[in-house]
Simulated assay, not measured.
Amino acid sequence: MKLTTHRVSAPLHTPFVTALRTATHVESLLVEISDGEHSGWGEAPQVWKVTGDSLAGSQACIEGPIATALDGLGPDDLTEALRRVQSAVVGNFGAKDAVDVALHDLAARRRGQTLHGFLGSTTDVVRTDVTLSVGDADALADAGKARVADGFDVLKIKVGTDAAGDIERVRRVRDAIGPGPRLRLDANQGWTRRDAVTVIRAIEDCDIELVEQPVAAADLEGMAWVTDRVNTPILADESVYGVRDLVAVIRHGAADLVNVKLAKCAGLATARTLLELAREHGLGAIVGCMMESHVGVGAAAALVSAYPTTAVNDLDAAWWLREAPVTGGIRYDGSLIHLPSAPGLGVTGLTV
């Protein structure tokens, strides 16, 4: 198998602002694994503020220890290849994710199957929410109305920069969009536990579906404290990378749901385990993404198709792109993501 990496920088049509960062481009490393006839694709996003992964680090990891670990394996050795990828290095979740997905994609293409079909699904459409970036109350209200007009009926408001102002911002969005669309909040670890309870209680009459990561990722006791004191479901995101993290959340009673992201858990293999573990222990789940292109989001959407979640998923990242950096793959129609009918992820090459 031949392994090749491609750095891409794709501009967004609108800046994406959270409590942690402001993004104007998707900066990613695309990975291509070829058997000489077929190519499988994966993506390692640059996520300095969450995983710490960088393009340079992921590229060095993939072209170095991961490539060495895969040396000598044939394209049909998927199980052994996935095991070697995960054991090749510590951390480097994005690099592992990219190679894991590319190996799955290649295996599906060699069998003439779509990736979601290879994972066991016959469903070719999944739903996503859309994020409203951090901004003042007027900007958020206008963005909320625009996104509803774009065909989205689940909106995620980025909060966590100013607890007092967050209450006004949420109320303004609800007033602007009316009672129909669902609202969920993402604080990106931005509140203290007491601020979280104060804000959530103050806006529960706005019919909030869930609140994501209200406090610092490591503060499971604090998140459990919040969960016990509000009626709105709490979603763990940055607190959960792998299986050990999810077990800790379950033991603490820290959250009602978990957000599974391929770039946090290092690929499809671990993601499936996390979704199954959450279900077995009565936790809800969604699948999310980083700021990724149609490659990474396509893999996450294929996972959702095969492993249905308990709430609408958070897979709008590629919708923010002015144009896709690849040909083929998923396409958006409002809140609907249409999965490709072509083999694998349906990606046929680069556009940049």
Rank of each mutant, 00 (worst) to 15 (best):
L73G: 09
V125H: 11
A88Y: 10
A146V: 00
G91E: 07
G120E: 09
T114H: 03
A187T: 08
I177W: 04
R127P: 00
R169A: 13
T131W: 02
H104P: 02
K156P: 10
R182C: 01
I157K: 05
V90M: 10
A108N: 11
T161M: 12
Q86G: 11
A163Q: 07
G151L: 09
A141D: 06
F152C: 08
T161D: 02
G190E: 03
R184I: 00
D186P: 06
R172F: 00
L70M: 10
D129H: 05
V154P: 02
I177M: 02
T198G: 02
V154L: 15
D124N: 14
H104I: 08
T79H: 13
V134L: 15
F152S: 07
F152H: 15
D71Y: 06
E80C: 03
V126T: 01
T79E: 15
A187R: 03
P75W: 08
T198Y: 05
I157C: 14
A69H: 08
L82N: 07
G135A: 15
R201H: 12
F93N: 13
V173S: 06
D76I: 00
R84I: 10
T128I: 08
S121N: 04
G120W: 07
R83Q: 13
D124R: 13
L155M: 10
A88D: 07
A88S: 15
V134P: 01
G120K: 04
V154F: 14
A108C: 11
D71W: 09
A141N: 04
F118S: 04
R127I: 00
H116C: 05
R83N: 11
A139E: 15
A196P: 05
G112L: 11
R184C: 14
V197M: 06
V130F: 13
D153E: 14
V99E: 06
V154I: 13
D136A: 12
A81L: 02
V148I: 15
D138I: 14
A107D: 13
V99R: 01
D129M: 01
I203Q: 01
G72R: 08
D76K: 08
A81N: 04
V101Y: 04
G151S: 07
I177F: 04
A176H: 04
A88G: 06
T68Y: 02
D138Q: 14
A146W: 09
D105A: 04
A139G: 09
G72A: 02
D136L: 12
W191E: 05
F118M: 12
L103S: 03
E168H: 01
R83G: 13
V197L: 06
R171L: 00
D195S: 13
D142F: 01
G112K: 12
L140A: 12
A187M: 05
V159D: 08
R127F: 09
G190H: 05
D124P: 00
A137M: 03
F93Q: 13
